[in-house]
């Protein structure tokens, strides 16, 4: 299934109505394979500009990359989850995102040849490793109001939510995140044991039979003297 085409059709149709920009289509496929980088193209961001959106998609992808082990953040539409969140749970984070994404681009331009999305995956990773430190590098703009590390941590945690939250929030598309970790999702009717390998293989302990206590109902432990009684 061509993920990018569905995304494009679904979102281009609403593009005129929304405030944000539309990402134009670049080289979409190479030998018929949709690359993770392009899967987010065509999505009309509701709250970010096209340029900001492009940076966010690239950043999410580096945080949870498509690789030999399976699909990544772009496939799961983590960017869609985060963008939707700006109208709701992340309303207060929108400005921080704007500034953070701009700062990330400024940082990459100062230390490298291009904005973040224009760098190779290797270079993107190197840039993020530099920012994933207590001391923010000097090339990170000082007027952002958030350190490189804090910004990265915030996007990481939102990306993970976009990977593993219920698909109804827009991320975890096609339950991609859940399939990767073998989590079945909601279980409205529960499970029957055995649940896994260990409850199946480790025998249940044999416990002694319960004998109801029939002794005196009095503590076997002597406590402190009652101060009132002491005064009498």
């Amino acid at each position: 299934m061509d993920v990018s085409r569905i995304t494009r059709r679904r979102f281009l149709s609403g593009a005129a109505k929304v405030a944000g920009g539309v990402i134009t289509l670049g080289a979409l496929t190479r030998q018929g394979v949709v690359s993770a980088q392009t899967a987010g193209e065509g999505y009309a961001f509701q709250h970010l500009t096209a340029e900001e959106g492009k940076t966010l998609i690239a950043l999410c992808e580096r945080i949870f990359p498509r690789d030999a082990n399976g699909p990544g953040a772009t496939d799961a539409r983590a960017y869609f989850y985060i963008d939707g969140g700006f109208g709701d749970r992340y309303r207060e984070d929108l400005e921080t995102y704007r500034k953070g994404l701009a700062a990330l681009n400024a940082y990459c331009q100062a230390t490298r040849t291009s904005v973040f999305a224009g760098l190779s995956a290797d270079e993107q990773e190197k840039a993020l490793i530099e920012l994933d430190k207590r001391e923010t590098p000097t090339a990170w703009p000082s007027d952002v109001g958030i350190s490189g590390l804090s910004f990265l941590r915030m996007v990481i945690s939102h990306t993970m939510e976009g990977m593993f939250s219920d698909p109804s929030y827009g991320g975890n598309h096609d339950r991609i995140g859940w399939k990767l970790i073998k989590f079945p999702g909601r279980a409205p009717f529960g499970y029957d044991p055995p649940f896994g390998y260990y409850d199946m293989t480790i025998p249940e302990t044999q416990y002694p039979e319960f004998k109801p206590y029939a002794g005196p109902m009095k503590s076997r432990i002597v406590g402190q003297p009652d101060p009132k009684k002491g005064k009498k």
Binding site: R62, I63, F64, P65, D67, N69, G70, G72, E125, L128, I129, D132, L152, R153, I156, S157, T159, M160, E161, M163, F164, S165, G177, W178, L180, I181, K182, F183
Partner: peptide
């Protein structure tokens, strides 16, 4: 799941392919 993905682990980055593999292998 989300809390597990964000778990603080010694000597493991919170992001990237290594983190992804760790989540997949251990959840």
């Amino acid at each position: 799941t989300i809390s597990f993905a964000n778990l603080n682990m010694p000597r493991l980055r919170r992001w990237g392919s290594e983190r992804k593999k760790w989540i997949m292998d251990n959840y």
